[in-house]
C-alpha cells in the first residue's frame, strides 16, 4: 500500500474534480482495511471538514453524510430506534469500536464489500445515495447498475418510516466478516428483505418481498413461502468461510427467524 500525495480540497467540487480526473485518486473515507484492499493510490482525497460528517434528521428522511462514522450512526438517537435500530445494530457488528470510529458509511457503500454488514442493513432501509454530480440513486439500483461511473458520494438518505426491522449476522468470531448477514424491514405490511455475504454483495429478495406485500395479514405459512422465494431468487456460493449449501441453510433459518420477528409479536412467534 502506498499513497503518493494527499489532497485536502477546499470544496466538494474540488474533491470531485480530483477524483474524476484520475482513476487512481481515491476519496479517503476512513481507512479501515486500507492496507489490505488498496495497493497504489496516486492521490488520497481527504474529505474532512467539508460537512460530510453530519447526520441530519428531516421530516421524511434521515440524511447521513458520507463521512459519518459507524459509531456516529450507532450512537445516533433517531437511527438507534429507526426500524428497530437495525442500521445502528449492523454498524455495531463491524469489528470493534476503534474501527467503528474511523470506518464511514460512505466507505462502506463505495467499498462495495461483499461481506459488508452495513450495505445489507442499508438496502433494507430503502436508502438512496446522493452524489456530487450524478442524480440521486436508490442503493439497490446502484448495486445493480450496469454502467459504472466515477462520482463522489456525499450522503445517504434513509426514509423515516414507522416500521420494524431486524439485522442478523453469523460469523465465526465477533471480529470476523459475515458467513451470511441479512436485514428485514416491515413497514405496515411492506417488506424489504436483504441478504449479504452469500458470499456476493448484498441483494434484495424482491420476489419474496413483493409476494408478501400482497398479503394481509401475513401467516406463518406465508413467511415460509417468502423464505423459499428468497432462496430461489438469490444466488449463493462457496468460499473459505462456508459452502453454498450451508449458506442456504443458514439463510433459511435466519430469514424465517427475522421475518417472524418483524411480523409477529413475541407471543405469536
Amino acid at each position: 500500500m502506498r499513497i503518493e500525495t494527499v489532497l485536502k480540497p477546499a470544496s466538494l467540487e474540488e474533491a470531485y474534480k480530483a477524483i474524476a480526473a484520475d482513476k487512481n485518486a481515491v476519496p479517503f473515507a476512513g481507512g479501515a482495511w486500507i492496507k489490505l484492499t488498496l495497493k497504489e493510490i496516486s492521490t488520497a482525497v481527504l474529505l474532512d471538514g467539508l460537512g460530510l460528517e453530519k447526520i441530519k434528521v428531516t421530516g421524511a428522511t434521515v440524511e447521513i453524510g458520507a463521512l459519518a462514522t459507524l459509531s456516529d450512526v450507532a450512537s445516533h438517537p433517531v437511527l438507534g430506534s429507526l426500524y428497530g435500530g437495525m442500521l445502528a445494530d449492523a454498524c455495531r457488528h463491524v469489528m470493534g469500536i476503534n474501527v467503528q470510529n474511523v470506518a464511514t458509511l460512505g466507505g462502506s457503500v463505495m467499498g462495495g464489500y461483499a461481506f459488508s454488514d452495513v450495505l445489507t442493513a442499508l438496502l433494507a432501509t430503502d436508502a438512496t445515495l446522493r452524489f456530487q454530480k450524478h442524480e440521486p440513486m436508490k442503493l439497490a439500483d446502484y448495486l445493480d447498475r450496469k454502467a459504472s461511473f466515477r462520482d463522489l458520494l456525499v450522503g445517504i438518505s434513509i426514509p423515516q418510516r414507522n416500521g420494524r426491522g431486524v439485522f442478523k449476522k453469523i460469523s465465526r468470531t465477533r471480529l470476523d466478516f459475515a458467513v451470511i448477514n441479512l436485514a428485514v424491514t416491515n413497514v405496515n405490511g411492506l417488506y424489504l428483505i436483504a441478504v449479504g455475504a452469500r458470499p456476493g454483495v448484498a441483494r434484495l429478495a424482491k420476489i419474496a418481498a413483493d409476494r408478501l406485500n400482497e398479503i394481509h395479514p401475513v401467516s406463518r405459512f406465508d413467511l415460509d413461502r417468502a423464505v423459499s422465494d428468497a432462496l430461489a431468487e438469490l444466488d449463493f456460493g462457496s468460499n473459505n468461510r462456508a459452502s453454498e449449501e450451508y449458506r442456504r441453510a443458514l439463510a433459511r433459518v435466519l430469514l424465517l427467524r427475522a421475518l417472524k420477528e418483524v411480523t409477529f409479536d413475541d407471543r405469536q412467534r
Binding site: 494527499v6 479517503f28 481507512g31 486500507i34 492496507k35 470493534g96 476503534n98 470510529n101 474511523v102
Partner: peptide
C-alpha cells in the same frame, strides 16, 4: 497493521482509533 487487532489504538479527540490505518495528516 490491518485494523484487526487493536494494539495500535490511540485516542483522537478522545475516541479510540487504529493508528495503523489513520493517516497522520488527518
Amino acid at each position: 497493521d490491518s485494523t484487526s487487532c487493536g494494539i495500535c489504538t490511540v485516542l483522537v479527540d478522545g475516541k479510540p482509533v487504529p493508528s495503523c490505518s489513520y493517516l497522520a495528516i488527518r
